[in-house]
Amino acid sequence: MLEGKVKWSNSEKGFGFIEVEGQDDVFVHFSAIQGEGFKTLEEGQAVSFEIVEGNRGPQAANVTKEA
């Protein structure tokens, strides 16, 4: 699992980007967020995730919010 911080997200469009130190930003779709209820990410929020190869390149999977 990698750790990063949410660079920005748009809940209306359903995606955002995660900033990882020393690496390119990672695309995240809201379907990759683990948990119940409305899935949102806040700018600056710490997250853990895996990287998978998506249709348009690397993207985050199994995203969990850190406490």
Rank of each mutant, 00 (worst) to 15 (best):
M1W: 11
M1Q: 10
M1E: 05
L2S: 06
L2G: 03
L2W: 12
L2Y: 13
L2Q: 08
E3L: 15
E3N: 15
E3C: 15
E3P: 07
G4L: 02
G4Q: 00
G4M: 02
K5H: 09
K5T: 11
K5S: 05
K5G: 00
V6W: 05
V6A: 00
V6E: 02
V6T: 00
K7V: 05
K7P: 02
K7L: 02
K7S: 04
K7G: 04
K7I: 06
W8G: 01
W8F: 10
W8I: 04
W8N: 03
W8R: 04
W8C: 09
W8Y: 14
W8V: 04
S9E: 04
S9W: 15
S9Y: 15
S9M: 15
S9H: 11
N10V: 05
N10I: 05
N10E: 04
N10Y: 05
N10R: 03
N10K: 05
S11F: 12
S11M: 14
S11C: 14
S11N: 12
S11I: 14
S11R: 13
S11L: 14
S11Y: 12
S11D: 08
E12F: 11
E12R: 11
E12A: 13
K13M: 09
K13V: 06
K13C: 14
G14I: 06
G14L: 09
G14Y: 09
G14H: 11
G14M: 12
G14A: 09
G14Q: 12
F15N: 01
F15I: 08
F15V: 04
F15R: 00
F15A: 02
F15D: 00
F15E: 00
F15G: 01
F15M: 03
G16N: 02
G16R: 00
G16I: 05
G16F: 14
G16Q: 01
G16S: 03
F17R: 00
F17Y: 07
F17E: 00
F17I: 04
F17M: 06
F17G: 01
I18Q: 00
I18S: 01
I18T: 01
I18V: 04
I18M: 02
I18C: 02
E19L: 10
E19Y: 11
E19N: 06
E19A: 14
E19T: 10
E19S: 13
E19Q: 13
E19H: 11
E19W: 09
V20Y: 06
V20C: 07
V20P: 01
V20T: 07
E21D: 12
E21M: 11
E21H: 12
E21R: 11
E21F: 12
E21T: 10
E21V: 12
G22K: 04
Q23H: 14
D24G: 11
D24Y: 09
D24S: 12
D24K: 14
D24I: 10
D24L: 11
D25Y: 05
D25E: 04
D25L: 07
V26H: 01
V26S: 00
V26M: 03
V26F: 03
F27Q: 00
F27H: 02
F27M: 02
F27C: 10
F27A: 00
F27P: 00
V28H: 03
V28Q: 01
V28C: 06
V28E: 05
V28A: 04
H29F: 06
H29M: 06
H29S: 07
H29P: 07
H29E: 06
H29Q: 05
H29V: 03
F30H: 08
F30A: 07
F30W: 10
F30Y: 10
S31F: 05
S31V: 04
S31P: 05
S31K: 03
A32Y: 06
A32H: 07
A32L: 02
A32T: 08
A32M: 06
A32F: 06
I33C: 06
I33F: 07
I33R: 00
I33M: 09
I33W: 04
Q34W: 08
Q34P: 05
Q34I: 15
Q34T: 14
Q34K: 10
Q34R: 09
G35Q: 08
E36D: 12
E36A: 11
E36F: 09
E36H: 11
E36L: 10
G37M: 07
G37Y: 07
F38D: 13
F38R: 12
F38I: 14
K39S: 09
K39A: 10
K39G: 10
K39W: 11
T40W: 14
T40S: 11
L41W: 03
E42W: 12
E42D: 10
E42K: 12
E42I: 13
E42Y: 13
E42A: 10
E43G: 08
E43K: 15
E43Q: 14
E43Y: 13
E43A: 14
G44M: 03
G44E: 02
G44N: 05
G44H: 05
Q45M: 12
Q45G: 06
Q45K: 04
Q45T: 11
Q45F: 05
A46R: 15
A46G: 09
A46V: 14
A46C: 15
V47M: 02
V47K: 00
V47N: 00
V47A: 02
V47D: 02
V47Y: 03
V47W: 00
S48W: 15
S48R: 15
S48P: 00
F49L: 05
F49C: 03
F49S: 01
F49T: 02
F49Q: 03
E50L: 10
E50Q: 13
E50A: 07
E50C: 13
E50W: 10
E50D: 09
E50F: 10
I51T: 04
I51N: 02
I51K: 06
I51A: 02
I51F: 03
I51E: 02
I51M: 07
V52K: 07
V52G: 03
V52Q: 07
V52R: 07
V52T: 08
E53I: 14
E53R: 08
E53T: 12
E53D: 10
E53F: 14
G54M: 07
G54C: 10
G54Y: 05
G54N: 06
N55P: 15
N55E: 13
R56Y: 13
R56S: 08
R56D: 06
G57C: 06
G57T: 03
G57N: 03
P58T: 07
P58F: 09
P58W: 08
Q59W: 04
Q59A: 06
Q59R: 12
Q59S: 05
Q59L: 06
Q59N: 04
Q59V: 10
Q59K: 08
A60K: 00
A60G: 03
A60P: 02
A60Q: 01
A60W: 01
A61E: 06
A61H: 10
A61C: 10
A61V: 12
N62E: 04
N62T: 06
N62G: 05
N62H: 09
N62C: 10
V63R: 01
V63F: 00
V63C: 03
V63L: 07
T64V: 14
T64F: 12
T64S: 10
T64P: 01
T64G: 05
T64L: 11
T64A: 08
T64Q: 12
K65H: 09
K65C: 09
K65V: 15
K65G: 07
E66T: 15
E66Y: 14
E66D: 11
A67P: 13
A67C: 12
A67Y: 11
A67N: 13
